[in-house]
Write a protein that binds this DNA or RNA. Structure first.
Lengths: 200, 200
DNA sequence: GAAGTTAAGTGGTCAGACCAGTGGCGACCA
DNA sequence: TGGTCGCCACTGGTCTGACCACTTAACTTC
């Protein structure tokens, strides 16, 4: 009311600055020190504002290089999911259930849309669950879905570590190569869902 | 995997602390200085982590008083995020595709878990798409899924208005009453997906 | 007992220092 | 000439200590 918080003010000023300068994805923002200087606020306030912009997915910071506009029209609605974090086992169950459902959904979509190029990309992925599956989700060509999955996976990693045998990755890749939705789903259920049901 | 940035680590540590202490809405968190002391990081890092939690709607800070758990149910973030949406066609496609997929997922889950009480609740819902479907999603008993759907729906409403004939609601309710996943899915595809494919 | 004062604690902000990466520029060498 | 190496300026990341504005509660005073 009386004095609005500086970092909020700064947030909007930077946001306006981005709009007025017409910054495009990949473009660089002024350095934190210069922003602080220009807006006549402390660097810490600038940083708190930048954190918000980062969380919203508008910018990306790279140490030693600078702050950049993030690629893709990245409406970060999904971050809202963060509000679910309020404690409890029930939320964990919900998280696992939702994540598995979405992953199966992605497998289906991937089978429909998979290009040879994307297939190659998946093949080259390391045999860790998150890296492998990220490429599968990318193959769906649905950026929103990717965002949702990334958030779910991020939370998931703080709860469990999922390691699967090499056969899983090999069989899954074979199924994807054949674009066989049924086969991919079956493999997923056999390995992942079985393992997660035991973990509960 | 390993996040080198302190403020991200701190974010998760505070989050864990909230969980383990079982903090409820309205409860107070330790002061910034105490958190910094306890987690052995600088106060500025604590503040950047708190900013993130605040943006996610988990906490609320009151100058001179402290930091408190926030009651959930706040839509303020959605409004904030709303100012960032620059709707491209690709994003629309992703939104519609994802929302429809999730709704079908919810139909499946609802058929598995639907209680008579929830069924009644659905029956009493008005015949508007969002109100009807919200109750369906609620019937899945998965709060995370509900959160995701609410966000998707919120944005969806800024793009389209979906009106369906009464038959849809009646047929759907009949299918749910029978707990028939196949039937419900078929009705969904017949009415919703058909209509949306034309809208594109 | 009530009103006013004080002191301690809290979030908000700033300035300055240092660390750790990045990248460009110039000196040096083959 | 062409390449390489190393220096240095600049960037984000972090910490510290200081001060302000505000709240609360204990204390003093009438």
């Amino acid at each position: 009311m009386t004095t609005s918080k500086v970092y909020i003010e700064t947030f909007w000023q930077i946001h306006r600055m981005i709009e007025e300068a017409g910054l495009q994805p990949g473009d660089r923002l002024p350095s934190e020190r210069e922003l602080a200087d220009r807006l006549r606020v402390g660097r810490s306030s600038v940083r708190e504002a930048l954190r918000a912009l980062e969380l919203l997915g508008l910018i990306e910071t790279r140490r030693g290089e600078g702050t950049f506009m993030k690629p893709f029209g990245d409406h970060q609605l999904i971050q809202l999911l963060g509000s679910f974090i309020l404690q409890g086992n029930r939320e964990k169950r919900d998280l696992i259930e939702t994540k598995m459902f979405i992953e199966r959904m992605c497998l289906q979509l991937a089978c429909e849309r998979l290009t040879d190029e994307k297939l190659e990309h998946i093949a080259r992925a390391e045999h860790t669950y998150d890296l492998f599956f990220q490429r599968v989700v990318e193959a769906t060509d649905n950026y929103l879905l990717l965002r949702i999955w990334l958030v779910l996976n991020d939370f998931f990693e703080h709860v469990y570590t999922l390691t699967l045998p090499s056969e899983f990755y090999e069989q899954m890749w074979t199924a994807l190569q054949k674009r066989s939705c049924e086969e991919a789903t079956a493999i997923y259920e056999q390995y992942v869902m079985q393992k997660m049901s035991k973990a509960n």
